[in-house]
Design a binder for these strands. Structure first.
Lengths: 130, 130
DNA sequence: CTGGATCCAATGGGATACTG
DNA sequence: CAGTATCCCATTGGATCCAG
């Protein structure tokens, strides 16, 4: 991947992969792909996320320019988060990845259960009893 | 991503994303994309990886059916790792992702430095001195 | 050479309480 | 409502030692 391109850009690839690999980023992006959302609405939509992690996730996405944060100076405060053009374009490779997993899901699952079965048999030998 | 597809497959998407987000998986896949490699060769190619993490990474990839492990019963032992067809096809969405980061690298970096500059200014206010 | 077992430090992330 | 600060636990990953 880095062979044909500027190697100095490779660390950024690693950083974006780490971001994708964290527990919440992709879910938040998916939820925002339907349109802007308020903080508390996102918290409700992304089931299981904590206040803290939603804040951290949104800050990271904002810093990378994938999400735009808009504060409406009303009372009570109203803050909206929306995908930027960059954020929306990011959805494309993500969907490609998701599509790959969907199409190959069964093969992956079969491979896993086969592997686990093989490994279980190997462990049986060591027990020698039971 | 999950809207139009079988929702039971979504956890697998999360698992594969976590795998991609770990520190070594993508690098190992890239190194194997040129052809089969021995354990110690991989350890040399993937600079900085520990024995332990190379083992864990390869096991995970083998379990998912992306990598095939072949033991040649010689002495000293010779073990080769190769991408399967599934593993090679996985490279496609990964490259798409990498390509996206490469093309948008500068915009991401600019967004980050802008964000950091803004945030630095905000923090200055709190210091009130210096 | 391949890789399992163990110990340890760093990080990720949840629960809770508090603020503007 | 939209966060920030703190505490705490689970997981990740590096270093090292050991074995087939």
């Amino acid at each position: 991947m880095c062979e044909n391109f500027d190697p100095t850009k490779c660390p950024t690839v690693g950083e974006m992969l780490s971001r994708l690999g964290d527990k919440w980023t992709v879910l938040v992006i998916i939820m925002l792909s339907g349109g802007p959302q308020r903080f508390s609405d996102l918290k409700r939509m992304v089931v299981g996320i904590s206040q803290r992690m939603l804040t951290l996730t949104l800050r990271a996405l904002e810093r990378d320019g994938l999400v735009e944060r808009t504060v409406h100076p009303t009372v009570p405060p109203r803050v909206e988060y929306a995908l930027t053009d960059l954020g929306r374009s990011f959805g494309e490779p993500i969907r490609a990845l998701g599509g790959w997993v969907f199409t190959n899901h069964d093969q992956i699952q079969k491979s896993r259960s086969d592997f686990d079965a093989r490994h279980a048999r190997e462990n049986m030998k060591l027990v020698k009893l039971g």
